[in-house]
Design a protein around this nucleic acid. Structure first.
Lengths: 117, 117
DNA sequence: GCATTGTATATCCATATGGATATGTATTGG
DNA sequence: CCAATACATATCCATATGGATATACAATGC
């Protein structure tokens, strides 16, 4: 079996930097393909293809406006990524590691200092 | 040009579900390859290969212990993912969209209600 | 030293990628 | 109806994936 398709899920879709750039651009508001082409400096067919991938995983939506197609971010579809990665967030917090939290919970009176690296 | 290598960055590395499973397992503590093989139900060479990818992007570290190799999570390397995705977090919060925040900032006295999806 | 255990590496293979380019389709204007 | 604009789709191609399997290497025990 080969590598999972980019259209499998949001994780695979946003692994491509260009597609993240597209999402970043769309986070500022709806945009036609044209503008994205300019912003990314890619050929139009490439941008259209990237948009297709993003659409297939539900990360963007489209709307027809005359002969333009306005793409719009659908942030809900990014939620699983955030949910997953958030599990790890506390591990790189100021206080390093789990142990500090555990200890702090056990003896809640001892003042603490950030052991930030 | 083909798709970026899985070893290009953390984004590409964690696009593979099995590798996320490995990281989830390692978030509970250091583990030898053996245990990961059991946990994932994959063939040992596959697990070793996944671990290589994760190691190349710096998401895990290894330590030799006798004839075992103990893998350990290096959460720092996941930070870029969290940083990126966090840009979008507020978009799926209770209050939907940016506008609410902007308006709330401008007129800080008007009480607000959740404009739930 | 040799077998055993624990991992890593080296093939083989089907698949889909992403860039390039050409062309198809839809909307607007004359 | 034809040209122009705005996108989408259809190739072609090199590449590396991830699973399978066999094998190499390294440490331990006898």
């Amino acid at each position: 079996m080969a590598r999972a398709a980019t259209t499998t899920d949001a994780f695979n879709a946003v692994a491509e930097p260009r597609r993240r750039e597209i999402l970043d651009a769309l986070s500022l508001g709806e945009r036609p393909v044209n503008e994205l082409v300019d912003l990314l400096g890619l050929a139009q067919p490439h941008v259209s293809r990237h948009l297709r991938v993003l659409r297939e995983v539900g990360v963007v939506d489209v709307r027809d406006e005359g002969r333009q197609r306005l793409y719009r971010l659908n942030p809900q579809a990014l939620k699983p990524i955030h949910t997953w990665i958030s599990r790890y967030e506390h591990l790189w917090a100021e206080r390093f590691g789990l142990l500090d939290d555990v200890l702090a919970g056990l003896q809640e009176d001892t003042p603490q200092e950030g052991a930030g690296q």
